[in-house]
């Protein structure tokens, strides 16, 4: 679980207009180039995060209960407390830092991309030019100097907030209550339990899956445990079958060649 005084960001989908000021601010502060993309039938652009896009707004649309919906949600690193990227990294280059922030030590990273495969949010990416991975830093260089993250600073509608984890959690809970009182019965907070609790919390109006957010995530450690257990059983069963097959025929097999 995140600690009360950890750094945190709150994204409130009920205030977001999809203007993407945050997306641009992130590029500017972090000196990230634009990407040449092609229209693929949605205002969502670029179509995914990359080593040069650490934050983008995800646009979802369709029909729900005979009503058209068009929703926006944040797509960036969640700064997980049990982060799959951290646990999968063989070198420890991507790791938890002060205040629960997850960042990459680019002088130690070897570019094996195991973290890229492991992150359930597709939030960490390999840079061909640099040979290492990069992602959202939660603006560590700003927040550790008392400034707000660039994306939060730029938001014109009040959909983004930053502060300590305890403050953001409280703000999320208060907002949830007033949304429920206003009749949004499906409103919910996302990130309280995902991946051990994330340092970026979302207030959503509908079920997270309608925004394309993953639900029912399992932690890296339980995937690893299942994997080793299965491999152990496989080795026992298949190994035994092979050895038995050969030893039954040992005289024939071992006899000559």
């Amino acid at each position: 679980m995140p600690k009360a005084n950890d750094y945190a960001i709150l994204f409130d989908a009920s205030h977001c207009t999809g203007c993407r000021a945050c997306q641009v601010a992130c590029k500017q502060w972090n000196d990230l180039p634009g990407e040449a993309t092609e229209n693929w039938g949605s205002y969502e652009n670029p179509p995914s995060l990359s080593s040069e896009t650490w934050l983008r707004m995800k646009f979802t649309d369709g029909m729900l209960n005979n009503e058209v919906f068009w929703d926006f949600t944040r797509d960036a690193c969640m700064h997980c407390s049990s982060a799959a990227c951290v646990e999968s990294c063989p070198t420890g280059a991507v790791n938890y830092r002060e205040g629960g922030i997850v960042t990459v030590d680019q002088d130690w990273c070897i570019g094996c991309r195991n973290c890229v495969q492991a992150c359930p949010y597709d939030a960490i990416h390999f840079s061909e030019q640099m040979g290492v991975v990069q992602k959202c830093t939660l603006c560590y260089d700003r927040v550790s100097n008392g400034l707000e993250p660039a994306c939060v600073k730029s938001c014109p509608t009040g959909a983004l907030h930053s502060g300590t984890y305890a403050e953001m959690k409280k703000a999320a809970e208060e907002r949830l209550q007033s949304l429920k009182a206003a009749g949004y019965k499906d409103a919910n907070i996302y990130g309280l339990n995902e991946m051990g609790g994330t340092h970026v919390l979302y207030v959503l109006l509908k079920h997270p899956s309608t925004y394309g957010l993953p639900v029912g995530l399992s932690k890296e450690s339980s995937k690893v445990a299942t994997g080793w257990l299965s491999a152990g059983i496989a080795a026992a069963v298949l190994g035994f079958a092979g050895v038995k097959w050969l030893s039954d025929r040992r005289e024939e097999v071992g006899g000559g060649s």
């Binding site: 990294c89 570019g111 195991n114 840079s127």
Partner: peptide
Amino acid sequence: GEPMRFWHLLAGIHPVSVM
């Protein structure tokens, strides 16, 4: 991505990582 740093694979000492 950084082949010359291959030795970090062992020197990083990170047993929770399968790799």
